[in-house]
Design a binder for these strands. Structure first.
Length: 478
RNA sequence: GACCCGGUGGACAAGGGGACAAGUCGCAGCACUUUCAAUGCUGAGAUCGCGGGUUCGAAUCCCGUCCGGGUUACCA
């Protein structure tokens, strides 16, 4: 059995998106589970779509998530370079091989000619494909056109009357007729190869064992098989992943959805949750487990449990999952990751013990990282009371509670949980109040809102001094 | 249009001839709690796209059909 080598081959046209991440993740998981290698290859063969900084951004996103590659740009292995624009000679040499063997030919048709041809075919209800008008050009004619500097491309000559069959690791046996495949352009007029040529050549030389890619490539697989055959190469194992869908069931696109991985990170989703969620979009273990760390996924993942049908990218479950990680990751981790959001909100906290207490209370009720910051305001700031709450605080019973605490609190340090409990009990008994009548005014005075953590936690976060001060303030105002 | 790939509750999905079709998210209710949240429990929600066939028996196999998606570029 050949060693497992898989590659994630994005084109640098923007940020890493959810669909790309899913492919990369499955590549990674499969490689790890098979003790193989995960390779990152940049397919920058379309100069017009190239976005500067995209390569760096792609790599940094992958690193941020911990989906690390074994070979790729900046991590050169024996098959370097891993950027296609740096491998042009290799593609040209192989295009020449095809030209020599007659498996490829020059085509001088302009895009206008091509468009016209297609329109005519369409009008006649014919199958739209290149009509091979340049195939009949004599060697001399080709030579003459080349010398006069005519723009040209190199096309693959697909076989006639040929049926392609292959076994996809996920879909099983798939068959397609060669007549359905166009004579694909291999080298464009700007001298760059198309995806088809470059990918097949690189997959071969980089010794890729499994081509794991989105289902949108399924229909062009015959071209890739044919190219391999022309070169006399063994084909890799094809693995076509189901597409990730928008809520309208079309292929997930940046147009309609927020699909950038960075943007989810920025919104405060945890990488653990994103990875876990994306892994489950098209893969499911035999048991009922849904929560997995990256390492656990590496141990459990297998291609044969990848689903065949496309899955809709639905945020509600991601939110739930993020909540799970908010609560179950080590407190220090969550605290540390919330720090940038505190800074961004202009609320730097120097007291780490207070911060960690706040985060401990907040993460129990928040689904996203920045929500911790909002939740912390009740402790870090003195919130303005709602009008109705102000009224409530003015009531006689409310004032009795506050007055009672105002005199008792200073005598009661330290305010640990037991003390807070006993004080509360004592106050309720001596004032003849209970439940909301007791708690609500106290909460309002302490944190400015009626809902929040339990009393001992509040006292612990605020500290005795601040707690007393807040109560006294509401006493006077009342 | 043609060719390919799909189709199990709103979403993710298990199950690939034999229990009243798992589980998770979401939703509703209850419990716990001073509150919110978390958690736990309960419930609603699917004649397995539809129609035929094979079979004692089909979500599972076969045929047809419908629907959805992908491809049909000098984009990947």
């Amino acid at each position: 059995m050949k060693p497992v080598r898989v590659r994630f081959a994005p084109s640098p046209t923007g940020f890493l998106h959810i669909g790309g991440l899913r492919t990369a993740l499955y590549d990674y998981l499969f490689a790890k589970s098979q003790k193989g290698k995960f390779i990152l290859r940049i397919e920058d063969t379309d100069q017009s779509r190239e976005v500067s900084g995209a390569v760096e951004s792609l790599i940094s996103s992958l690193h941020r998530l911990g989906v690390d590659f074994d070979e790729g740009p900046g991590c050169e292995g024996e098959f370097a370079p891993y950027i296609q624009s740096q491998r042009l000679t290799l593609y040209h040499q192989h295009a020449q091989l095809l030209l020599d063997s007659g498996d490829a030919y020059h085509c001088f048709c302009s895009s206008e000619t091509l468009t016209k041809m297609r329109e005519e075919q369409q009008a006649k209800g014919e199958f739209v494909k290149y009509d091979r008008r340049c195939l009949s050009l004599s060697k001399a004619e080709v030579q003459q056109k080349m010398e006069s500097g005519e723009k040209h491309v190199i096309r693959l000559r697909m076989p006639d009357n040929h049926r392609f069959g292959f076994d996809d690791a996920i879909r099983g046996h798939v068959e397609m007729d060669a007549s359905q495949s166009d004579d694909q352009v291999l080298i464009k007029s700007d001298g760059f190869p198309t995806y088809h040529l470059a990918a097949v050549i690189d997959d071969h030389f980089m010794q890729i064992s499994h081509v794991i890619r989105g289902e949108e490539w399924l229909s062009s697989t015959p071209k890739h098989i044919w190219l391999n055959q022309c070169f006399g190469w063994e084909t890799p194992i094809w693995v076509h992943l189901p597409l990730i869908l928008s809520t309208d069931r079309s292929k997930l696109s940046k147009r309609m959805n927020d699909v950038s991985v960075e943007s989810y990170l920025a919104k405060g989703y945890l990488k653990e949750a994103i990875l876990n969620f994306v892994a489950l979009l098209g893969w499911h273990s035999a048991d009922d487990r849904e929560l997995y760390s990256l390492d656990e996924l590496c141990d459990t993942f297998s291609l044969d449990r990848v689903t065949k049908s496309g899955a809709i990218f639905d945020l509600t479950k991601l939110d739930w999952m993020n909540g799970q990680y908010m609560r179950n990751l080590p407190l220090d981790t969550i605290t540390e990751r919330s720090l940038p959001y505190f800074q961004a909100a202009g609320m730097p906290i120097d007291n780490t013990s207070v911060l960690s207490k706040i985060v401990a209370a907040a993460r129990e009720r928040c689904t996203l990282l920045p929500e911790i910051v909002e939740y912390s305001r009740m402790f870090l700031e003195r919130l303005e009371l709602e009008a109705s709450d102000k009224e409530l605080l003015k009531s006689i019973d409310s004032q009795r509670v506050l007055a009672w605490f105002s005199t008792e609190l200073p005598k009661s340090a330290p305010l640990d949980a037991d003390k807070v409990h006993s004080l509360s009990k004592l106050c309720m008994e001596s004032l003849g109040l209970k439940g909301k009548a007791f708690y609500t005014p106290l909460r309002l005075a302490l944190i400015g809102v009626a809902h929040g953590p339990d009393l001992p936690t509040i006292f612990s976060i605020l500290g005795e001094e601040e707690a007393i001060s807040r109560i006294n303030l509401k006493c006077e105002q009342g």
